[in-house]
Simulated assay, not measured.
Amino acid sequence: MKEKTVVTIHVLLLLAVLAVFIWSIIKPASYSSWVLEVTPAIIILIFVIVTYKKFRLTTLSYTIIAIMAILMFVGGHYTYSKVPLFNWLKDTFDFKRNHYDRFGHFIKGMFSIVIRELLLRKTALTKGNWLFWIVTSISLAISALYEIIEWISFIIGKGGKTAKNFLGNQGDIWDAQWDMALTIMGTIVTLLFLSKLHNWLLQKEL
């Protein structure tokens, strides 16, 4: 893939993310909830923009980061438990809850490709079973850390509306376990189906 084409794709991804970000910040359901929900995405975006020239990732990694950022911006705008499309799905199929949060955690498993790339390029690890399980373990660790952050935020916020929106368990006592399980599922599916494409892009783009 030509350098100019690759850069163009990266710029288009960034513009799409910025457009959703601008939309997201305009009259969200709650600005305090919005800040809690979108801060991780903003931090990651700033990092990849600042390091773009010194340490460019593959287009697949940037695409995944863009998708995750957009999901967080949408969730931040409405709050995860009130995203309209998933409210419609809830009503249409008689679900007990809005599943946007769980969908988001499954998609977050795609971040495993970014973890995989960092390990392949910055450590002595090579492709194979060890890489698969180490990436999966790191993905689970990040998911668990996020659940701990949600729990701490709930305690600090003393169970207020903002804290409840950020926690987003919708009355399910097993919500944290569901979130981590779905992230693991997303991670395994991603590694099984996208690793070959990722290997090809590592050779062609870097």
Score class of each variant (00 low, 15 high):
residue 103 F to C: 06
residue 111 F to N: 01
residue 122 K to F: 12
residue 32 S to R: 12
residue 101 D to Y: 08
residue 98 N to T: 04
residue 151 W to K: 10
residue 132 F to S: 00
residue 144 A to M: 14
residue 41 A to N: 06
residue 95 F to V: 04
residue 162 T to G: 00
residue 46 I to K: 04
residue 89 L to G: 04
residue 34 W to D: 09
residue 50 V to R: 15
residue 98 N to M: 03
residue 152 I to K: 05
residue 71 L to C: 11
residue 46 I to A: 14
residue 133 W to I: 13
residue 109 G to E: 05
residue 47 F to C: 10
residue 96 K to G: 14
residue 165 N to I: 09
residue 27 K to D: 00
residue 91 D to F: 09
residue 102 R to W: 13
residue 150 E to F: 05
residue 118 L to A: 14
residue 100 Y to D: 08
residue 61 S to E: 11
residue 124 A to F: 15
residue 156 I to E: 01
residue 22 I to M: 09
residue 87 N to S: 06
residue 70 I to Q: 02
residue 68 M to H: 08
residue 64 I to K: 00
residue 26 I to R: 06
residue 48 V to W: 08
residue 80 Y to V: 07
residue 33 S to Q: 08
residue 144 A to H: 02
residue 99 H to M: 10
residue 26 I to H: 12
residue 124 A to N: 11
residue 95 F to L: 15
residue 44 I to D: 05
residue 128 G to C: 09
residue 117 E to T: 13
residue 160 G to V: 09
residue 154 F to M: 07
residue 77 H to W: 14
residue 143 S to A: 15
residue 110 M to N: 02
residue 156 I to D: 00
residue 118 L to R: 03
residue 35 V to L: 12
residue 112 S to G: 02
residue 98 N to P: 01
residue 73 F to P: 05
residue 154 F to P: 01
residue 104 G to K: 08
residue 112 S to Q: 03
residue 26 I to V: 09
residue 52 Y to A: 11
residue 65 I to F: 04
residue 66 A to L: 04
residue 101 D to V: 14
residue 31 Y to L: 08
residue 117 E to P: 13
residue 146 Y to Q: 10
residue 107 I to L: 15
residue 77 H to V: 04
residue 160 G to E: 13
residue 160 G to H: 06
residue 75 G to K: 14
residue 67 I to M: 13
residue 110 M to Q: 08
residue 84 P to V: 14
residue 57 L to A: 06
residue 138 I to T: 07
residue 27 K to C: 00
residue 69 A to E: 10
residue 97 R to C: 02
residue 146 Y to W: 15
residue 43 I to Q: 00
residue 77 H to L: 08
residue 130 W to C: 02
residue 103 F to R: 02
residue 83 V to I: 10
residue 91 D to N: 14
residue 90 K to L: 09
residue 49 I to H: 05
residue 123 T to S: 10
residue 47 F to M: 13
residue 135 V to R: 05
residue 150 E to V: 04
residue 139 S to N: 03
residue 31 Y to H: 10
residue 37 E to W: 11
residue 141 A to L: 13
residue 151 W to T: 10
residue 100 Y to V: 03
residue 72 M to I: 12
residue 88 W to D: 12
residue 95 F to K: 00
residue 73 F to G: 06
residue 145 L to S: 10
residue 80 Y to I: 08
residue 142 I to S: 03
residue 134 I to V: 14
residue 24 S to N: 10
residue 152 I to W: 07
residue 165 N to D: 15
residue 57 L to C: 00
residue 140 L to G: 07
residue 126 T to W: 07
residue 62 Y to L: 09
residue 123 T to Q: 02
residue 120 L to C: 06
